[in-house]
Design a protein around this nucleic acid. Structure first.
Length: 285
DNA sequence: AACGTAACCTGAACGC
DNA sequence: TGCGTTCAGGTTACGT
């Protein structure tokens, strides 16, 4: 679900609404939501009670809330997770998994997740960068992201370019929507072998990835339905700007050819059959 | 070691 | 109306 623009939208909301606040009580309503916190729910809650949240940070699609104890709450939204700031008397969401109350009697923080692919955990000493997410690459909006490092690593891979864009250890924050959008802008089919990309082609691709993420962020992300919302429950509207994702059969915004849909990793890839011809040779090992 | 796939879940939309 | 199938914005564990 949420890719970088959606997660960053949530991060900003957390920064506004929960930083500087002291946690009173944490209630775990579904154990699977904290399955990555191996010591379990009681331990999770005990580490958080009385702690103050000092910031809201993000690495790729992961979020973390540093605490005054030096620990951090790590969060990932998975496919259907939400972090919502809600008045204490707001009715419980159907898929409410974890609830945080604060000692200022202000609004609660709620982790809601229909499918529970996402989850929360406490990272011991993880305030700066939790070790659990140290394997995630920087994202292309990160000032320390290395463009040349990325393009060189990309061209060293022996895989297909869309797979590479989705590999969070190579570049983070990109998911199925923005990978397809960036590939369309680059006129590249996702099955193109990475090691056959020229240096300029790789540079252009990165530029389009960065552009589409920036534009989507400016519109609060992409929301097809109420599952993808900011901490106040509001939807982004980048879906109106999509060129290929979800547009099977509709005319390409560049050449008019009907957009094609192909199966990809138990999901779909969308592309223009004319602007993005399938490579003649598959990736060979 | 690097790469590709199956599995983890729930619910909405669709076809019969 | 109801039942079965398909699909969904992600990541990980486990094969090869």
């Amino acid at each position: 679900m949420p890719e970088l623009p959606e997660v960053e939208t949530v991060r900003k909301g957390l920064e506004t609404w929960v930083t500087g606040r002291r946690i009173a009580l944490v209630e775990v309503r579904h154990p699977r939501a904290i399955r990555r916190h191996l010591p379990g729910a009681a331990h999770f809650a005990a580490l958080l009670a009385g702690r103050t949240i000092t910031a809201a940070r993000r690495r790729g699609k992961y979020l973390w809330l540093p605490l005054d104890s030096g620990d951090a709450v790590i969060g990932h939204l998975g496919m259907s997770g939400q972090l919502l700031v809600q008045p204490a008397d707001a009715p419980e969401e159907t898929h409410l998994r974890v609830r945080f109350t604060f000692d200022d009697d202000g609004p609660e923080l709620r982790f809601v997740d229909q499918r529970t692919f996402g989850g929360l955990a406490v990272s011991a000493g993880g305030a700066e960068l939790p070790s659990e997410i140290a394997h995630i690459a920087r994202d292309p909006m990160d000032p320390l992201f290395s463009d040349t490092g990325f393009t060189a690593a990309l061209r060293r891979r022996r895989t297909e370019v869309k797979r590479a864009l989705l590999d969070q250890t190579l570049i983070s924050g990109v998911g199925n929507i923005y990978a397809d959008e960036a590939l369309w802008r680059s006129r590249l089919h996702g099955a193109r072998p990475t090691d056959a990309l020229t240096r300029p082609a790789a540079d252009r691709l990165l530029g389009h990835v960065r552009d589409v993420l920036t534009e989507a962020l400016g519109q609060g992300g992409t929301s097809f339905d109420a599952l993808y919302v900011n901490v106040n429950g509001e939807s982004g509207y980048f879906d109106r700007s999509l060129d290929v994702y979800g547009r099977e059969g509709l005319p390409c915004h560049r050449c008019g050819a009907p957009i094609r849909r192909e199966a990809f990793m138990n999901r779909s890839s969308f592309s223009c059959p004319r602007c993005q011809p399938r490579p003649r040779t598959a990736v060979r090992v």
